[in-house]
Write a protein that binds this DNA or RNA. Sequence first.
DNA 1: TCGTTTACGTAAACAGTTTATGTAAACCAT
DNA 2: ATGGTTTACATAAACTGTTTACGTAAACGA
Lengths: 117, 117
Amino acid sequence: MTTTERKAGAGALYGTLEVLILNSLKDHGTLHGLEIARLIRDRSEDVLQVEEGALYPALHRLERQGLIEGEWHISEKRRRARFYQITATGKKALRRELQDWIQHTDAVSKVLGLRKA
Amino acid sequence: MTTTERKAGAGALYGTLEVLILNSLKDHGTLHGLEIARLIRDRSEDVLQVEEGALYPALHRLERQGLIEGEWHISEKRRRARFYQITATGKKALRRELQDWIQHTDAVSKVLGLRKA
DNA sequence: TCGTTTACGTAAACAGTTTATGTAAACCAT
DNA sequence: ATGGTTTACATAAACTGTTTACGTAAACGA
């Protein structure tokens, strides 16, 4: 109530979602969409919320680009679900994107006068 | 030649430009647009490129929101330029945005299994 | 006087979110 | 068996903030 507005802003995940997905699959072999979303939420202690409207388009992009591969199977809860794995190309892309992310955040840190000066 | 394509990607600055501007003004008192852009480029050792098409809209947003204040003066090179200062509201917003940025990057770091586990 | 630099400005295209809905099947309780 | 909840995927519209590409105008130097 009162004025507990939640400004979503420009998108808290912007740019990072793809690395997060690729890395999750690299660490866990095979996961379906909602499992990936839960994993990211849990590992970030609820800081990163992966909305389904961002999740599925991202998975489709990555599969179209050949960075991940999906197959239809049955989930633990007995529903049909698409299980993804990272490909060799995906691992390469992941390494590159990890470096880019580190370089970018280090650069911002420098400008902001934070750690890693 | 060959294949030296430069993929700009989704927007290297996405989300961070506003904090970077506010912080620059907090550290340097008074600057005009291009000075801010140069400062960010230099301090990041050329990693962060602030395009004018992102810079000016951002400055206008911030001024409209009352986070910065601008005045027309003459620059060192004798051109008319808009000199900005951060406001009290801007400083508050900066503190909040700094915290958000740290929280966000720490969360991503955790999920990616990097430092600050 | 012509080309370059400084400084600001903006519009169109693009990308990746958020928000809101929808489908469908499985499960549970009544 | 029926109705409500959960699981899982899907997509469209709205939004935001970039990138790319121009355009203006004045100052400066050759």
